[in-house]
Design a protein around this nucleic acid. Structure first.
Lengths: 245, 245
DNA sequence: AGATCAACGTAACATGCTGTAACAAAAGGC
DNA sequence: GCCTTTTGTTACAGCATGTTACGTTGATCT
């Protein structure tokens, strides 16, 4: 394989050049870009093996851009973000990103991830499916990221709705961390237009209630999906994560 | 693994340099920092394996800083404190600290703890889980840190409210030590926004009363939750502590 | 001992937050 | 288009927590 070419997309010039230089020094050809148009230009003018995409691109939303790019072309994309709050956003829905890395990052880790994704991309025939797939285990339960399904422990028989599953995913991605209703709502709405700063009613409460009813042994005394009074909710359960190829 | 890099955060220059030198002499790369901004700067500019964080950073609250950092990045954090009174603060709520050490410390112990935490961090995939879990036993009672629940001795049947449980945790962390109402309130509110210097009414008294009613055999003559007249309250009961992996 | 006064215990009330049933709206399925 | 399922809204009841008020306790002084 020839020298890998990657596109560094960030609106902060400092970070952009920092990243570009870092990858250049590590044997990549790294091209800087700041806007969606520039990205498209690069994609048209030459081969790009991977895109490093900032989640916050000025007032643009990296997630949206990713979704658009993905529809048009199969480029591996790795998200980069400064805020862990964004992390939930990513956990909430697969947008087609191949991986996700939080700033500030460990350079070695970053390199490793980039290489891993490119490896994977080379093996995978159709890239359309590529995205981070993770399976979570908690209690006797399993969330199967591959099928996006929840499997109950033994005898149980449940089927979660789409939204319930999404909520569960957000919780699983943030175990033991109290999440406010707003944070949860934001994570759930990644799939949407991305502009819903409006105050939402009690939708989250009801959703939580319904999920409890389905996954808690005794919904009246929730063991996993606990409420953090005055704050929001916590998933108080250890979760084992499994990354899949 | 390469040389471990750790960040020493303290506003007292003397302690800062003392610690930095100590760790340098023991084969670490130790970087000093005094403010939250400096911490962030370091995190951005390079790999940091562990943070030693003073509980009192001038008028800032180390606990708050820890909570903020934790939300953004998974760095192991060890708290350092001069006052045992601060201990309550830590017991009040798990903020995500990996360990807690009281000044003045035994250098060997400090080294051991630092190494232990770094070991643990390396094994743990997602650091988001890491937090100190402790189980307390007193009288026939048990506080189960894993579930954050209180179990009554035999036949008894009680369920403590969240706040009552929190109060109990504060007391259990400081057996035989008289705590003022302010200290208790501070410890209870670690979870909150952190800015409540206002004088609080008799809330603590009432809370203590309710807890007594639930856990004392004869609430009128409390054996464990004694009042220290003119001071506050004492938990006059031997407590066995169990650390969990 | 008795008087005095501050500290404490607690019942009763006030407030705010949460759980949830019941209804309404929206999204699919056929 | 009609029916079913999912999702959001609203309203209300229940609970957790804080506040107030008042009676009691205990320390101190004379």
């Amino acid at each position: 394989m020839s020298i890998p070419r990657l596109l560094v997309v960030d609106d902060d010039p400092e970070i952009r050049s920092m990243l570009t230089q870092f990858f250049q020094q590590n044997g990549f050809i790294a091209l800087p870009a700041a806007t969606e148009d520039q990205v498209r230009a690069h994609l048209k003018s030459g081969r790009i093996d991977l895109i490093l995409l900032d989640v916050m691109l000025g007032d643009e939303n990296g997630v949206e851009i990713c979704a658009r790019l993905r529809r048009e072309q199969d480029v591996p994309i790795i998200f980069v973000s400064a805020l862990s709050a964004d992390h939930q956003r990513m956990a909430g829905y697969e947008v087609g990103a191949d991986d996700y890395i939080a700033k500030p990052f460990n350079p070695q880790l970053l390199l490793a991830r980039v290489r891993a994704v490119m490896q994977r991309a080379r093996r995978t025939p159709s890239l359309a499916y590529r995205r981070r797939i993770r399976t979570f285990r908690f209690g006797g339960w399993v969330y199967d990221g591959k099928r996006d399904e929840v499997h109950a422990p033994d005898g149980y028989q449940v089927s979660l709705s789409q939204r319930e599953t999404a909520l569960l995913k957000v919780l699983l991605a943030n175990p033991h961390i109290p999440l406010t209703r707003d944070e949860i709502a934001a994570a759930l709405d990644v799939t949407g237009s991305g502009d819903k700063p409006e105050a939402q009613g009690r939708a989250i409460d009801v959703l939580v209630g319904r999920l409890r009813f389905k996954i808690e042994a005794n919904p009246k005394e929730p063991q996993m999906l606990r409420t953090a009074r005055g704050v929001g909710y916590v998933f108080a359960c250890d979760v084992a994560v499994e990354d899949e190829a």
